[in-house]
């Protein structure tokens, strides 16, 4: 297998007395989509935020393409991020926001991928102010911002929440393209049905610890189920029975 694109080594994050993430050791590879799941408060968002540099790990280190990330923001050039909640400066237009992000990332027109703007119907709304957009349209803008720079690493936090099924499918289609081009895609989602077709591996977090990370096929085969939503409870029951403290 190729060298890992992202490596978490003994990563822990403590907020006050609470450890949101503990002793996380995991690697994510080029050309794969990993779905990160777990109950509320299990550490999914903290894992993502550590990778993005939004929070500093209390212990351990994270490496991207072999380089341990520190205060240098340049590693984020390779990352596209679609947050769960999209809030933008109210008085800017969609076009101005896209220009701003392009300027900040130092992209030129030859590099940016604007297909999704047209596919999601945003091309006719570029002059519309962000304050006038519905939640779903803001999510579309957020998806465009994440995918426009053709990222090597795509991080999506509940990407289909608030999107209509057609738009969700288009966004996930572009995420699949990132994988096909050798990118690494990390997705957290509660809507497993929408994302499971895309996932190569499933990482399950609970109480800030990674309980398992398994290939999707293996989970379905070992449980004899067709869908992740049914396979996952069975797998968790088995692991509990086997004393794996899940």
């Amino acid at each position: 297998m190729a060298e890992p694109r992202i490596t978490f080594t003994d990563v822990g994050k403590r907020y006050g007395k609470l450890w949101a993430l503990r002793e996380l050791n995991v690697a994510f590879h080029p050309g794969e989509v990993v779905m990160i799941i777990g109950p509320n408060g299990s550490g999914k968002t903290t894992l993502i935020k550590c990778l993005l540099g939004l929070v500093r790990p209390t212990t351990g280190s994270i490496a991207v393409n072999g380089e341990v990330i520190g205060t240098d923001p340049n590693y984020r050039r390779s990352i596209g991020y679609m947050p769960q909640i999209s809030q933008f400066p109210a008085a800017l237009t969609i076009g101005q926001l896209l220009d701003m992000m392009r300027d900040i990332r130092g992209l030129n027109d030859a590099v940016v991928d604007d297909r999704l703007i047209n596919e999601l119907g945003l091309d006719k709304q570029l002059d519309k102010r962000l304050s006038d957009l519905s939640g779903g349209t803001r999510q579309k803008v957020s998806a465009v911002l994440a995918l426009r720079s053709k990222p090597e690493i795509l991080v999506m936090d509940e990407p289909t929440a608030g999107l209509d099924p057609v738009s969700a499918s288009k966004v996930l289609g572009h995420a699949a393209e990132v994988r096909e081009q050798g990118g690494t895609v990390l997705i957290t989602s509660h809507l497993m049905e929408e994302v499971e077709a895309l996932a190569d591996r499933i990482a399950y977090l609970e109480d800030g610890q990674l309980r398992f990370i398994l290939p999707m096929d293996e989970i379905l085969q070992s449980t004899g189920q067709q869908r992740l939503a049914k396979a996952l409870p069975l797998l968790l029951e088995r692991k509990l029975a086997a004393g794996m403290n899940v």
Binding site: G53, T71, P73, R77, P83, I104
Partner: peptide, 17 residues
């Protein structure tokens, strides 16, 4: 406070805090 989420989005770009 109102621009916190946008500040987060800026903070994940290749730009120093």
């Amino acid at each position: 406070y109102d621009s916190l989420e946008f500040t987060q989005l800026l903070a994940v770009q290749p730009i120093a805090r």
